[in-house]
Structure formats: C-alpha cells, structure tokens
C-alpha cells in the first residue's frame, strides 16, 4: 500500500493525465442500437426514392406539356377519339356511333401516322447535322427523339383500336397496308394540287 501510495504521490501529475486520457477513451464506447444504421439507411433510401420520383414526375409533366414538333399535334387522333366518345352530335340525333365513320377516322389516323413516320425518317439526317452544328438546343433535340417513341405508341394504339373495331376479323397487316396506301394517295393528291395551282398561277 505504502509503496503504491508513494508511487501515486510521486508521479501524481503524470498518472492523473494518463487516467484522464483513459476516461476519455472509455467514454467513446457507447451502446448504439442496431436500429441506428438501419434507420439511417432507410431514411437515406427513402429520401433518394422520393427525389427520384419527384424528378421523374417533373420530367413527365414537362414532356406532357411540351407540344409535338408536328404542327397539327396529332389532330387525327383527337378526331378519332371525339367520334368514339360521342362528342359530335349525329345529324339524325341517334346516339349510336356510325361504325363506318369511326373506321374511316381510324384509317385517317393511321395514314397520318405513316406520314409522320416517313417525315421523321427523312429528316433524321438533317436533325443530326443541325444538332452537330450546335444550331439546336438540347431540349428541341430531345423533343425530336421523343417523337419516334410517340409515333410507335400511336401506331400500336391504332392497331389495337382496329382489332377492337373489327373484332379481330381482319389482320393488323391489312390495316397497315390500307393506311400506307391512303398516305401515298394523299401525297399524290397534294402534289397534283400543287402543280395544278402552279399552272393556274402561270396562266394568270
């Protein structure tokens, strides 16, 4: 004991600092619940998920608001659905939908899809050049790229509607064929009209 006490006394200052340090280290060991990291990770994941969802909805909203680069903005589609949902009053007052009118609206819609598709494919190179030249903003190029996806969805929707209308009697290939023919015929008609007007102008 006496030895101990002298030792203690003799090195009082030293030992006290040592003890203090030991105290300090022992304080650092704390009982942490297993839940802590789990809660931490969940909070982190949840906030990330929320952020991701927020960003994607924002993006979605934005893409819903941006109009199509086609000036008529898929008008034949609107016409078709307007007929289907009886937004027009029929001439004889009956609320039965005229099947033929609906079918021709659908074919018109399908033909316009083909027209858009051809136009998009034709201008692909042009848009790439303009993009590479730096003439086009990022947004507009994205709008253009989006149009390809939209047109595919539109075509799928047309085929689905066609199958519904004909109750599966006609094959989708036939629908595509009809639409393509209509599209080309319309193009020829426009061209003829154009040259006609040119000739008329010259005659004047």
């Amino acid at each position: 004991m006496s030895f101990n006490s002298t030792f203690k006394n003799g090195t009082h200052s030293n030992s006290s600092t040592f003890e203090n340090e030991a105290d300090a280290t022992s304080v650092q060991y704390k009982n942490i619940s297993i839940l802590t990291p789990i809660i931490y990770v969940t909070v982190l994941l949840c906030s990330l998920m929320y952020l991701q969802r927020y960003v994607s909805t924002k993006k979605h909203q934005k893409s819903m608001q941006t109009p199509s680069i086609f000036e008529d903005n898929y008008r034949p589609r609107e016409v078709y659905y307007a007929i289907k949902e009886k937004q027009y009053t029929t001439s004889n007052g009956s609320d039965k939908i005229d099947e033929n009118a609906l079918l021709s609206a659908l074919i018109h819609r399908g033909a316009s899809v083909f027209r858009y598709k051809i136009k998009l494919n034709e201008t692909k190179q042009t848009f790439d050049i303009l993009y590479k030249l730096g003439s086009m903003g990022e947004d507009f190029y994205e709008r253009y790229e989006r149009e390809f996806k939209l047109i595919e969805m539109e075509l799928e929707d047309c085929i689905r509607e066609y199958a519904e209308l004909t109750k599966g009697k006609q094959s989708p290939q036939r629908f595509a064929e009809i639409c393509q023919n209509v599209c080309f015929n319309e193009a020829i008609k426009r061209r003829v009209a154009f040259y006609d007007s040119k000739v008329q102008n010259k005659l004047k």
Binding site: F70, E71, T123, M136, G137, D139, F194
Partner: peptide, 14 residues
Amino acid sequence: SSYIIEKVFNLKKG
C-alpha cells in the same frame, strides 16, 4: 432556333 427549325420542318410542300 427551335421556332425556326420547327417552322421549316412543318413547311408544307406547295
């Protein structure tokens, strides 16, 4: 630029 490109893109023949 977007406006002009869109206009040219939608320009109808004739």
